[in-house]
Amino acid sequence: MRKYTPKDNVQGKAYYTDRYHVVPSVPTFDVATDEVFSKHLAAIEAVVEVKSAKIMLGQMIVEINHEDNFKAIETLKNECDYAILSEMSAVDYLAKDGNFEVFYQLHNLKDVKRMRLVMRIEQGLAVESVVPLYKSANFAEREMFDMFGIVSNNHPFMKRILMPDDWEGYPLLKTYPLHGDEFASWYEVDKIFGKDAREAIGPEIRDQAQIDRYDTKRFSRVGYEVPFGADISEGETETPIEYSKTLLVDYTKKSGKQLDKRK
């Protein structure tokens, strides 16, 4: 029987895991252990429902409902001095529970605190854009859309950013293979020459070591050089190699050319 490979996550996987391997976790702490963070948490709890909150590796992680993101971030910005949105993006958990995890990495310059606001969102749903609060979300939300297909509502310019505009598929999904899908492999051919040309051009050669013995346009054999594009299916004649005398350097001589003068 053929080995089963899951289709919903085609990323790199451990080829061997010990039967008794127990995955440890990074220790988490209660938010009450940090004075500043508990104040910030109280401010969020006053406006939206908080699903969970913890401190991991010195940063607070607060989970909220995805409908509340704008309200929560507005509070954090205006009341808790989180002046910078350092980063926002998503994590693909579609294979596990059919959700994306969207995170907002916020930075408080005054108290020197960093926190992460996370929310789970189902595939196909859109998040509310936070561009009115942080302009840095402009590019970040576009990147999230480009990579995961999560649309931000009320974004001024919701368009792909890193991939071409006419790209199909979202590259950072776990279902998207590392080397690209069917669309990706024919992208240039389809775009430049049209779909009809696929057969004439043929699939892209991904094997970097592949050599076509009879292709004299891209390959040649040392000692058997032939004119560009010549047909060698009948075999080729040997051309003796003539080395230039002037270019040869005798490295055996002590007084020979010193290549690295710096040393």
């Binding site: 995955v23 976790s25 990074v26 991991m56 590796l57 940063q59 992680i61 980063e87 992460r116």
Partner: peptide, 9 residues
């Protein structure tokens, strides 16, 4: 290496 489960920024 297999780091513990968790997230870090």
């Amino acid at each position: 290496m297999r780091p513990p489960k968790g997230e870090v920024y």
